[in-house]
């Protein structure tokens, strides 16, 4: 007979990038707004961390529509990092987030190293921002973003420049659109990253066969959702083996089982992205699923599962 010991509460907590998290469930930037949007359907205090929409120095209008298209088990987006800008974020969005017990991570992106440095310096002494996630991997912004993320030298340059500008923990968000993720991960670590997060979306494309036009105005976009999970898992595993700092897994996680695969591969936390669109309560349901898994396997702490891939 299978007996489940319900007399203990499994420990899901994890220390990562200088933050103590109640659990390893984070929200992926760009899929959770500025947090407040979800307050009616998610108890935000239950989350491990909230990562907000990517912020730039000036407000950004984003790309022309159509910006999204659904594909098999996934979606392509080319939003173009539309956001309110760092000043409006600090003034209008941060006060709500500061009231939560959940740490908040500001995701930043620039078109030049100076812009990244400017953003990091601007929020370095701002209370309520527990860490900075540096997006060097967005595929949808021209003349920046991805250009930094695909070249190991520029990865080192941008990370070390941001490192000098900020005392806050730095999470570097990596692009999957590279041939050697291990080298990129190592350059980010050498530049001073406290943690890595990957993967961002995979550059993709869809065509309307009747008009023969791209389905996205931007022509190409970033593929996300369950379709990319095997690629994400492979790259997280490669990054874990290449660096000593913690790795945060992202890519197509819609269930606790998906998240568990990333932990076994060595991820210290995960981010939930497109699943928030499919099911706004996905983060909480995944959290509940993790607790059930630990209880049914009589495991006291989730950390004991990290990096236990059997080869």
């Amino acid at each position: 007979m299978n007996t489940i010991n319900n007399n203990f509460i499994p420990d899901l907590s994890v220390d990562i990038a200088g933050m103590h998290l109640k659990n390893p469930i984070m929200t992926a930037s760009g899929t959770f707004g500025y947090g407040e949007e979800f307050k009616d359907v998610v108890d935000l205090n239950l989350l491990g961390a909230i990562i907000v929409k990517g912020l730039s120095l000036a407000p950004a209008p984003g790309n022309k529509p159509p910006r999204i298209v659904e594909t098999a088990c996934g979606m392509l987006n080319a939003i173009g990092l539309e956001n309110v800008g760092i000043e409006a974020f600090v003034r209008d969005k941060l006060p709500f987030l500061k009231k939560l017990s959940t740490p908040m991570v500001a995701n930043i992106y620039g078109k030049t190293i100076d812009e990244y440095v400017g953003l990091a310096a601007r929020i370095d002494d701002v209370d309520g921002i527990s860490a900075i996630e540096v997006n060097i991997s967005c595929p949808n912004v021209k003349a920046g973003g991805v250009a930094f993320g695909v070249d190991p030298r520029s990865v080192y340059q941008v990370v070390s420049a941001v490192r000098k500008a900020s005392q806050k923990p730095l999470i570097i968000k990596l692009s999957p659109n590279v041939s050697d993720i291990a080298t990129i991960a190592q350059r980010a670590e050498e530049g001073g990253a406290d943690a890595l997060s990957l993967i961002n979306t995979i550059t993709g494309m869809a065509i309307d066969i009747h008009t023969r036009k791209p389905k996205l105005a931007n022509i190409t976009g970033g593929l996300s959702g369950p379709a990319i999970k095997p690629i994400a898992l492979r790259m997280v595993w490669q990054a874990v083996n290449a660096v000593k700092i913690p790795v945060i897994g992202i890519g197509g996680i819609v269930s606790a089982e998906d998240a568990l695969e990333f932990f076994i591969a060595g991820a210290s936390a995960v981010q939930i992205g497109t699943a928030n669109f499919m099911n706004p309560s996905a983060t909480i349901e995944i959290l509940e699923g993790l607790t059930r898994y630990l209880k049914s396997n009589n495991m006291a702490t989730l950390r004991n599962l990290y990096g236990t891939l059997v080869l």
């Binding site: 707004g33 910006r67 669109f277 706004p280």
Partner: peptide
């Protein structure tokens, strides 16, 4: 009516130009 992903103002996919 447009295509949209989240319906609640976070994905920003349903922009009109």
């Amino acid at each position: 009516e447009t295509i949209m992903a989240c319906g609640m103002g976070v994905c920003l996919g349903c922009a009109l130009d």
